[in-house]
Design a protein around this nucleic acid. Structure first.
Lengths: 181, 181
DNA sequence: AAGCCCATGTAACTGGTTACATGATTCT
DNA sequence: AGAATCATGTAACCAGTTACATGGGCTT
């Protein structure tokens, strides 16, 4: 049940409403980590309150409830962070396609791989821009930048996709004389 | 509905039974692409036959049915391969944890990051071994090795995780004088 | 004959998505 | 006044997991 721990992690940073949490999922996690809609988040927050992991720390306008993490919640989050990974099976459509490349003929494979490389390079460029923006607005003596860490991971990930696709193209090039092997 | 396309991709390689397909998911795809159990695969194959994407090409012992991809199935697979990615949301527990690092104190962050680096390095070593085994048994004049492409991706992916984790540790080191920022 | 692997299926349940529904506040 | 955004919720549905169930064929 990773949704629960994702919510605990976000609330560990600062207390937030279900609405805020929905946006955070959309903006920061849904890229390559996890995703959830509000219809899943609101009921889960209630259940987590029942389990003592979070509490309502404030009620504002429009019936909004601000949830905060409890000590018990923090302990549970830490326990999860240190537990072995591996339970939830991965779902990565990009990688799935890459495993299926062999179902195409050579010409299609080249076109598709070229597309993948270009798309990944596009994402690299955007992330590089975003990171340099972050760094411009961060004083040199600030503490460790966790948002920066995540962005760096994303950058390296897309760079990997691009490099890998270019490498596949070069391997395919070696076989251009035997088009049907 | 990626399960359907994963099955089409596997059947495009060669006709197989539901049982075979279940094993292929386990052995090759469940690492970082996709996963599915037999209880999901058997009904889906039936539905796909209803939709004309696959057909039973052989019936063997123990009531086994060997499915093969149809022309219609091949066309659908190709259509999917060239369609924009992005529909199915990612689920990657490792990356989720990495986004949650900031919820730990500095000492815990160091220990956990060190663990992540070591685990990834272990996987790199195993994959490197597997790849060199593959290459030993492949004649130099063989066609493009798609299994090799996938393994290469895996290798680079775990190498990325390891490198990133080591980089985070070095960044944290820069801040060891301000333990609570 | 016993044990293992092959082989297929269904049922109950859980997690996740889409659609429906409502209303308050803020901005223009 | 109208539109956009804030804010929460439920219901129906779909995808995926776990558990239950059965039996044939192969090896020792």
């Amino acid at each position: 049940m990773s949704l629960r721990h994702a919510l605990l992690g976000l609330l560990a940073d600062s207390p937030q409403t279900g609405y805020d949490l929905t946006k955070r999922f959309d903006q920061t996690l849904s890229g390559y980590a996890w995703s959830a809609g509000h219809s899943q988040i609101y009921p889960e927050l209630k259940r987590m309150m029942g389990d003592g992991l979070v509490g309502v720390v404030d009620e504002g306008a429009r019936g909004s409830k601000t949830y905060g993490i409890t000590d018990e919640g923090r302990a549970e989050l830490r326990r999860w962070m240190f537990s072995p990974v591996g339970d939830t099976p991965p779902r990565n459509e990009f990688v799935l396609r890459l495993f299926m490349l062999s179902s195409l003929d050579l010409a299609d494979t080249r076109v598709l791989t070229e597309n993948m490389a270009a798309a990944s390079e596009q994402e690299v460029a955007e992330l590089r821009q975003a990171i340099s923006d972050i760094e411009k607005h961060t004083p040199a003596d600030a503490g460790p930048g966790y948002a920066r860490f995540a962005a760096e991971f994303g950058l390296r990930y897309f760079q990997l996709q691009a490099d890998w696709a270019r490498w596949v193209l070069s391997e395919l090039e070696k076989h251009r004389d035997q088009p049907d092997s």
